[in-house]
Design a protein around this nucleic acid. Sequence first.
DNA 1: CTAAATGTTTAGGTGTGACTAAATTAAAGC
DNA 2: GCTTTAATTTAGTCACACCTAAACATTTAG
Lengths: 219, 219
Amino acid sequence: MNTSQENYLKAIYSLSEKSDSEFINTSSIAHKLNMKPASVTEMLKKLEVKKLVEYKKYKGAKLSEKGSQAALNIIRKHRLWEVFLLKKLHFKWDEVHEIAEQLEHIQSKELTDRLDDFLENPRFDPHGDPIPDKHGIITDNRNTSLLSEMGVKQSGTMTGVQDSSSIFLKYLERINITLGQKIEVLDKMDFDGSIILVAGEKEVSISAQAAQNIIIRIN
Amino acid sequence: MNTSQENYLKAIYSLSEKSDSEFINTSSIAHKLNMKPASVTEMLKKLEVKKLVEYKKYKGAKLSEKGSQAALNIIRKHRLWEVFLLKKLHFKWDEVHEIAEQLEHIQSKELTDRLDDFLENPRFDPHGDPIPDKHGIITDNRNTSLLSEMGVKQSGTMTGVQDSSSIFLKYLERINITLGQKIEVLDKMDFDGSIILVAGEKEVSISAQAAQNIIIRIN
DNA sequence: CTAAATGTTTAGGTGTGACTAAATTAAAGC
DNA sequence: GCTTTAATTTAGTCACACCTAAACATTTAG
Ligand SMILES: [Mn+2]
Ligand SMILES: [Mn+2]
Ligand SMILES: [Mn+2]
Ligand SMILES: [Mn+2]
């Protein structure tokens, strides 16, 4: 398997997490990977031959067990490298994702497992996402919710984001909403769905769109 | 530039170090990269267009200044990652080269420079090769020689190898000739060019072929 | 229930980096 | 110097991962 195919598996995995339907359609994969649907169709057939996905014409694809394991392995590497970049090389949390996109494709099981030990087996990456163990198992038993789903007067701790883009992470940092920040929802505006909350001491207003990308562990 | 082209530049650089002629011929590059001469010719033309090499028909190629800098940058990354794998992840010295072949192609100047600092700016890799600094400058002012070039009664310290293959490194370890080992040449056999030396306490005999791949810092 | 709109696949094409076989050039031997 | 041998380049293919445009299937709306 090569970088391109690995990126497809990862894309399908991540779309499956959010989607409620079994099969992921061609155009959503294409959109995620900045490619054209026609290219995706071709690749899905190749991945089917390799028994990494099940592909149904006009319905899309779903990962096989083998495909899931492969995807989890890439995600594991991605997140471990992100921890390395942040903790050991002191990159900022909005800088690590891009470099990890490259490092996740390095092929060496031994390297991954030793890196895991070197980092003292971290359970979450710098954006709050859980890191699969060497068997591809994710143990994430935290009671989390999207900020957009929280009710007034509910409080919790910021533990993750749905969007790891640098532009979003920089915005969060600017308004003082970083990993580990305690927050409490003060008000939800019917007008535009924006949310007013306290982050630390300060009161901030957040758009509905932003709130859909912030993960909170409920107290 | 991609992995393939980077490997060409690295190959040409390393062949230039040993060769006395300016231009490196097609077949030696092909041999080094396990490819056919015809493929090399094609690639040399592409690298010429990118001003990374100067290519003369039937003579071969030589790196331009731009090409040299690119090659040195890849070598820098390769050797830094090797140090990382050995010192931080505790790989053995014969295991690091293969993984570094992959890691050397990660594109991020920031990453390379931070890795350099994290490792406390090492000057040599696990096989004794010098590591170029961030400007591509190699400062290797050690008085070294190939073991095969040494005379009887000369002594020194093992500081490097010419051949980083796992099979050769394992052999060296078996006969107790590792980095930092003090040695003294006892005898050179006219019969087959083999060399008899003391490594630590023990007396060992080494073939001419092996001796050509062992670098010694002269006392 | 049918027609239009939307999503998906197929067909055909491109750039890249490899290959083999044939043609060409350079080097070596006499 | 000429001829044989060896190295190199050229010509023609192939696999891969992408693309566009056209054909086709499914979904949605009237
Ligand atoms: Mn990431
Ligand atoms: Mn990737
Ligand atoms: Mn190496
Ligand atoms: Mn390489």
